[in-house]
Amino acid sequence: MSTANAYLTVRGIDVDVIYKDIKNLHIGVYPPMGRVRVAAPRRLDDDQVRLAVIQRLPWITRQRQQLRAADRQSEREMVVGESHYVWGVRRRLKVVERPGRAHIEIDGDRLILYVPASRSAAQRRKILDGWYREQLRQVIPDLIAKWESKLDVRVPAWNIRRMRTKWGTCNRETRRITFNIELAKKHPDCLEYMAVHEIMHYFERGHGERFTKLMDDAMSDWRSRRDALNAAPLANEAWSNKR
């Protein structure tokens, strides 16, 4: 069955729409980030779908809140054998307790944490957090430079933050792009998609037809990258409201 896709924003909520040869409209809210997807009959247009979503907003909001409040795996204790992801690759943690400066290295399929024995689990998580930030800092400049050239734009500022429900944001006034630190755990293609997505907001505020066209022209496989980004929750994280 052939499908046509639309990408809408309704009251600040991103909505994926798939038009199909079906009789009734169906709305779903999916983990891990509460993405809203609509399967709509072809006889409906974007405005009719938008109205249907608005009418179901109380239910959609409740579903998204339940997803965000759902229990995830226990907070990582930063001990030997735990799984941690780096650029989409699952690695087992090895902890080497020794005096001196704490740092992290990759050795084969292992993520090795060198740390004084006195450091607590919270302190070890902070070390890992800083290491993830550094991974992003190393690759984002070249990535942005690549797309500045391709799109003939300039990204004046960017930063990295821990965000609970968004992979990235764009402030159209300052043109600052913010990346979620969690992107260091995803495949590099996902980070590139997120960079292009946010840069596109320089040209188009919402996620309507024009935004979709811009994304299609710039990155033909953006939908598959987006789906890969949202496909599997990193459930071993203890998400907090701290930005």
Rank of each mutant, 00 (worst) to 15 (best):
V139Q: 05
N159Q: 03
S74P: 14
D71R: 05
A52Y: 06
L136E: 00
Q66Y: 06
D129V: 02
T61A: 01
A145H: 01
L93K: 13
D152C: 07
A145Q: 13
W59N: 04
A122L: 10
K150Y: 10
R125Q: 13
R50L: 07
I104C: 02
E75S: 15
V53G: 02
R98Q: 15
I112K: 07
R133E: 11
A117H: 07
H103V: 05
D109Y: 03
W147N: 00
L93A: 07
W131N: 04
R125A: 01
H103G: 06
R133G: 12
Q63Y: 14
G88P: 04
R50I: 15
I112V: 15
Q138W: 06
V80Y: 04
H103Q: 12
A121S: 15
H84N: 08
R62E: 13
V80E: 15
V96H: 13
I54R: 07
D107F: 01
G130F: 09
L128K: 08
D142Y: 01
A122R: 14
R90H: 02
V153K: 06
R162W: 02
L57N: 12
R90A: 08
I60S: 12
L93G: 06
T61L: 15
I60G: 04
W59Q: 09
R110F: 11
V95K: 00
D142A: 03
R50V: 04
